[in-house]
Design a binder for these strands. Structure first.
Length: 283
DNA sequence: TCCTAACCTCT
DNA sequence: GAGGTTAGG
């Protein structure tokens, strides 16, 4: 697996793409997706080492490379306009090796339905409670749980969901779970659909606007053309591309035009750079 | 089109 | 007191 710096590894698993990774006291990362549990560590050569509970190790061995490095990032990065865009080149250099995770679709939808007006730590707390209270325990672990599937979520009341600190998001998740339960195959067909159609389908769900839909498709369906526009990207594009006063919709259009087929990958680098270095820079 | 409320925890 | 948004007036 590719060499990463500890900082880029942290950005990859805990930079807002996924919400089920935690840094352990020994500086390893413990992560859960679907029924997989893994511990990641950087060795002294900058290589990535992993371990998993014995009962899960065989499946993790196959699933981990697809989850972390399922995209041909080198090809995608080379296709970005870094030769003519000095800010993009700076971001690519600062987070070399950063990529887009390939997460389970349903879990990604759940995570980003929790994300509205929340910071990463708070989203992780909601997701942890949903797993602990509504997800099945994972064999061979010390009381770790998988996330509930959408059919499982459909059996929870809105009151129970609200108890997981979801606030107004509880209603969105409850209604989405009811819809998915009533429409078998809808989620799978949405994941398989082309980008524009998949986005339109997702946006019919309560609590899913353009930004959430783009995050779900980028991080949970491998659609690298999706270009989510959140407050960080609004700030980054205003500062670095002089797009002050542009609406999110206009910024999204610019992003797709300027960065092209792999706009979502560019977005992740811009996002990481702005979070790391943009806080104290004058506008 | 624009503005506000929706919830609840942590800063 | 506002936080990586959405829906409805």
């Amino acid at each position: 697996m590719p060499a990463l710096t500890p900082g880029t590894l942290a950005e990859l698993v805990d930079g807002g793409q996924a919400f089920r990774w935690q840094r352990e006291p020994d500086d390893t990362w413990l992560g859960i997706w679907a029924e997989h549990v893994v511990r990641l560590r950087m060795n002294s050569n900058g290589g990535l080492e992993w371990s998993a509970p014995e009962a899960l190790a065989a499946r993790v061995r196959t699933a981990l490379p697809l989850y972390l490095f399922g995209h041909d990032t080198a090809t995608a990065v080379d296709a970005l306009p870094w030769r003519s865009d000095t800010h993009l080149a700076r971001c690519l250099n600062a987070f070399s090796g950063l990529t887009i995770l390939r997460q389970p679709f349903g879990e990604t939808l759940l995570g980003f339905l929790c994300s509205a007006t929340k910071q990463i730590v708070q989203i992780k707390q909601m997701i942890a409670l949903l797993a602990q209270r509504h997800g099945a325990p994972l064999a061979g672990t010390n009381s770790l749980h998988r996330l509930p599937t959408w059919p499982e979520l459909a059996t929870a009341s809105e009151i129970e969901l609200r108890a997981c600190l979801l606030g107004f998001r509880a209603r969105y998740i409850h209604q989405t779970a009811q819809f998915i339960a009533a429409n078998p195959g809808w989620l799978e067909a949405t994941e398989a659909a082309p980008y524009a159609e998949a986005k339109a389908r997702l946006m019919t769900l309560p609590g899913v606007g353009a930004k959430v839909a783009d995050c779900v498709l980028l991080f949970g369906a491998g659609k690298l053309e999706a270009f989510p526009v959140d407050t960080w990207i609004i700030k980054a594009m205003a500062r670095r591309y002089a797009l002050d006063e542009w609406t999110p919709e206009q910024v999204a259009h610019f992003g797709r035009m300027h960065f092209g087929t792999f706009a979502g990958l560019a977005q992740q680098y811009l996002f990481a750079y702005e979070r790391a270095y943009g806080k104290t820079v004058s506008p």
